[in-house]
Design a protein around this nucleic acid. Structure first.
Lengths: 127, 127
DNA sequence: TTCATAGTTCCATATTTATAGAAATATCAT
DNA sequence: ATGATATTTCTATAAATATGGAACTATGAA
């Protein structure tokens, strides 16, 4: 994944209405949901909703298809997983053992907090 | 994870310099890196860098600790994994079998594109 | 103390992003 | 055609975010 795509994806999701839209669509699954229904659920006026759906679409996080008068939006699951992979890429310099318990998908699950590092000489430090 | 935390995290990462910083720190692992070294690597003037480090810190994506004159920043791996979990939460309404091949961590790996939905009556549609 | 180093905060400016009314487009039913 | 529904584009305005110079704070060394 290119950096610019990741920034676009993150930026698309970093807004309350759009995050709501995206999670709604993630939960809805591949069948998707019509723009109108999304707007009803989230209480957004059509132009505002359309703006946000466009942002998500340009960022590649959703796809759309017309069905009769409705436009059906669906989450782009591939884009989501690519983004997650990008964020965790080469975690801990490849030495995932530095990332504590159940570091399954290359560190993405759960990593140790950086507190108890002190590799050799235990050095006392302040925050 | 609360929605506001997710938005803060996504917003923090949705900016080129900050994404660079975060990925650098993810790859560096728990030992972290001094602000100065980050600035050198990314070619950012100190005030700009400090601004972005603060954004990441307020969003909970990095932690900082002082070591002598340096301030060492580290990625917050827990925050990252919480964010990833939030994004994929209840994927496909819990029926992860709707999300195609190797849907390991609740859909986060790879999900089917929404193209071949057509649950019952195969309806021809245009895009 | 004084100096050099490492970072931060303050501030003004520039840029980007969000909101929603009004008008326009597309589809379907009559 | 005409009207109703579904959604978008246009537009102006408002709000949030990014940038970097100048000045400030904290730490350690001479």
């Amino acid at each position: 994944m290119k950096k610019s795509s990741a920034i676009a994806a993150l930026g698309a999701l970093a807004q309350e209405t759009r995050l709501d839209i995206f999670r709604l669509l993630v939960q809805k699954g591949p069948q998707g949901m019509a723009a109108g229904e999304i707007g009803e659920r989230l209480g957004q006026p059509p132009p505002t909703l359309s703006f946000h759906l466009n942002q998500l679409r340009f960022a590649g996080m959703v796809t759309s298809r017309r069905v009769s008068r409705s436009i059906i939006y669906s989450a782009n699951f591939k884009a989501m997983s690519d983004l997650l992979a990008y964020l965790t890429e080469n975690c801990c310099g490849g030495r995932a053992e530095l990332c504590a318990p159940r570091a399954s998908a290359g560190c993405s699950s759960e990593c140790a907090p950086p507190a108890p590092v002190q590799s050799r000489k235990s050095r006392r430090i302040s925050v």
